[in-house]
Write a protein that binds this DNA or RNA. Structure first.
Lengths: 102, 102
DNA sequence: GATCGTGATATCAGATGTTGATATCAACAT
DNA sequence: ATGTTGATATCAACATCTGATATCACGATC
């Protein structure tokens, strides 16, 4: 029940977090999926990979393939444009967040 | 451009804000729509009224009709159950927010 | 008491976003 | 070749969002 609610409210927020993560270090899909799940946030693989593709189309992220233990991973990292978008999104998120906690 | 992005990221967050607002004082649709717009957040009337109805179905809000200057407004206020949902959502939002700014 | 104006709410068809089960992929092992 | 494995991709079914338009309830005007 809380799961559904959290999802309705925070899926968009999770997408900001993906950009943020990719700003700190290159990330790949499964990693972020599992990490989010660990903290009680869920995003389906369908949405997750689609989000990566969308961000790449918008020029927020670029990816590079790496072979890790014989498996291909696509590591995404942020671009200049993505960093600008992230800053804007964070700023707006902060505004709303402040309104929640003032 | 920023508008679209903000929306993709923050629509869910805006819904938490609606609950929060209804926790402080009774609110009606147009009021919150215009107030959000003033701060650069947009939510369509379709989504907004649908959100009110959904929250009422879930038992988060109840409404009461008031005649103001000869016009009917539906003022929504939060319920006990809604307050619990709000607290949960705010807690989770804080977790994500903290991750963004640490 | 019929018609109009107004602020607000409701609707719903079309567009867009999400899901998750399933398919596919690339590398390595046997 | 065939199988295994970790990961990514797909896509039909489903859910959500939009916004133009309709509707509502009341008061005013004639």
């Amino acid at each position: 029940m809380a799961d559904v609610m959290i999802h309705e409210f925070l899926l968009g927020f999770i997408k900001i977090y993906i950009l943020q993560f990719a700003d700190k270090e290159p990330v790949y899909g499964k990693e972020i999926h599992d990490q989010l799940e660990e903290f009680g946030f869920k995003i389906s693989f369908g949405t997750l990979y689609n989000t990566f593709h969308g961000f790449e189309e918008k020029g927020y992220l670029v990816h590079e393939e790496r072979n890790v233990n014989g498996k291909i991973r696509k590591y995404y990292r942020i671009t200049k444009h993505g960093r600008e978008a992230l800053a804007t999104a964070k700023g707006k998120a902060r505004e709303l967040f402040t309104a929640l906690y003032e």
